Computed example of a mutant assay.
Amino acid sequence: MLLAQSRENIASVVIDVLEECEELLIEVGRKYRSALSIDGNDVRALYNLGLALSLHAQLIADIGLEAAFDADKEAIAKFDAMVSRSNAYAPDALFRWAIALFSSAFT
Rank of each mutant, 00 (worst) to 15 (best):
A57K: 06
L49G: 03
A105W: 07
L36P: 04
D70R: 08
A68S: 11
H56I: 06
A81Y: 05
P91A: 10
G64E: 03
S104P: 01
V14L: 14
L3Y: 14
F102N: 15
G64M: 04
D62V: 00
A61K: 10
L94V: 10
I10D: 12
L25M: 13
F102V: 06
I38L: 12
F95P: 08
A68V: 04
A98W: 11
E19S: 14
N48L: 08
A57R: 00
D39H: 13
A71L: 06
M82S: 07
V83G: 05
I38F: 10
E74L: 08
V13R: 05
V83L: 07
T107Q: 13
S12H: 13
R44Y: 08
Y89K: 10
S103Q: 12
A68D: 01
L18Y: 11
L25G: 07
C21W: 06
N41R: 12
L46F: 05
G64Q: 05
H56S: 08
A93F: 02
R7C: 09
H56G: 04
L51Y: 06
A93K: 01
E8G: 04
F102P: 03
Q5N: 14
D16E: 13
D80P: 04
P91Q: 01
S104I: 04
A11F: 09
K78W: 01
D39I: 01
L18S: 11
A57D: 00
E20G: 06
D62P: 02
C21E: 15
D39C: 13
L59G: 06
D80I: 00
N9R: 15
I76N: 02
E8N: 12
E23S: 14
R44D: 06
D62Y: 03
A57G: 10
L101F: 13
L18R: 13
P91V: 06
Y89H: 15
A71F: 02
A105G: 09
F79N: 00
L3R: 14
L3E: 15
I10Y: 12
V83S: 03
S6H: 14
A105H: 05
A4S: 14
V13W: 06
I76Q: 06
L46S: 00
E74G: 03
L53G: 03
A98V: 11
S54Q: 01
F69I: 09
M82G: 03
S84W: 12
I10M: 11
E19W: 07
F69N: 09
N48A: 11
S6R: 13
Y47R: 03
V17L: 14
R44L: 09
A105S: 13
I63R: 15
R44C: 08
I38E: 11
S12P: 04
A90F: 01
Q5F: 09
Q58L: 10
L49M: 01
E20F: 07
A57H: 04
A77Q: 11
D70K: 09
L55K: 09
I63H: 13
N48C: 09
I63M: 08
L101A: 15
L94F: 14
Y89E: 10
M82W: 04
S12Y: 08
L59Y: 06
V17F: 10
V17W: 08
L53D: 03
L25Q: 04
R85L: 14
E74D: 12
S12M: 14
Y47V: 08
